[in-house]
Computed example of a mutant assay.
Amino acid sequence: MQLDLQLGQAIKGNVEISERNLMLVFQVNCPSCLSRALPMLMRLKEENKGFNFFALSTAFEDFNLNNAKSTKALIEQGELTLHSKRYFAQLGLQKLPYEVDVPVVMDWFMPTIASSELAESIYNVFDKERLSQTVMNSIKAHLAQRLLPMSQMGRTFLNNGFQGTPTWVYFDKDLRIIQSWFGHKEIEWVQALLDK
């Protein structure tokens, strides 16, 4: 299976695809991404030379929090967003308790104008002369309701049909997926995969 990788703004370091790559797809407003997944990615990086490790910040919800501005603040100042802030506050922490030492890049997002053009082009397919204005208004409202959230999602996240975050993708230089999974696995399981 081929990975559809759509890289956007670089937040920290540069991402260069190599022979063996492990990508963590995360959201800044995902407590388990920040408390378990990112630290594990960094530990794997320390213990595995010859691999390319990086994190892709994406959004499939909470678009006002999961964005480039919040990702930059997290990486540069350790600033946490709503759910992540609540989680770390329970541990007595106000900021991310570690420095992220892997490259971090944003997923690519469709410009808002492109999503409205898409909705308009779909709307224009309908035969407006045969349908009542009430039906056409309903179609337009439904398109806006369905397409707007999809247009705000990160393209790598959406195009690959990922289930949520954290999502891990192990792939080669030709973007062939060797293994991918949603959620958490024990580090020993991941290490065994990388050792193959």
Rank of each mutant, 00 (worst) to 15 (best):
S115Q: 04
S116H: 12
L147A: 01
S18Y: 03
K69G: 08
F60G: 00
A55G: 10
N124S: 13
F26A: 13
A73C: 05
R130E: 11
F182V: 05
R86Q: 07
G50N: 14
V100P: 07
L7R: 12
L41R: 05
T81K: 09
M42S: 08
I11K: 01
I177P: 02
L96H: 09
N124G: 01
V25T: 03
N67Q: 04
K12I: 05
D174L: 05
N52F: 10
T134Y: 04
S18T: 08
F126S: 06
F53I: 07
V105N: 01
H142D: 14
M106T: 03
T112Y: 11
N21G: 06
A89F: 03
P111V: 10
A192E: 11
L56G: 06
V28T: 10
L131D: 10
S84F: 05
D4Y: 13
D195H: 13
D174H: 02
L56N: 08
R20D: 00
R130L: 09
S121A: 12
S57R: 02
F26K: 08
L3C: 12
E188F: 02
L5R: 07
G183S: 14
E186Q: 15
L41E: 09
G78E: 13
G78W: 01
A10C: 03
N160Q: 05
V125I: 14
D4Q: 14
Q145S: 13
L65G: 03
A119F: 05
Q179H: 04
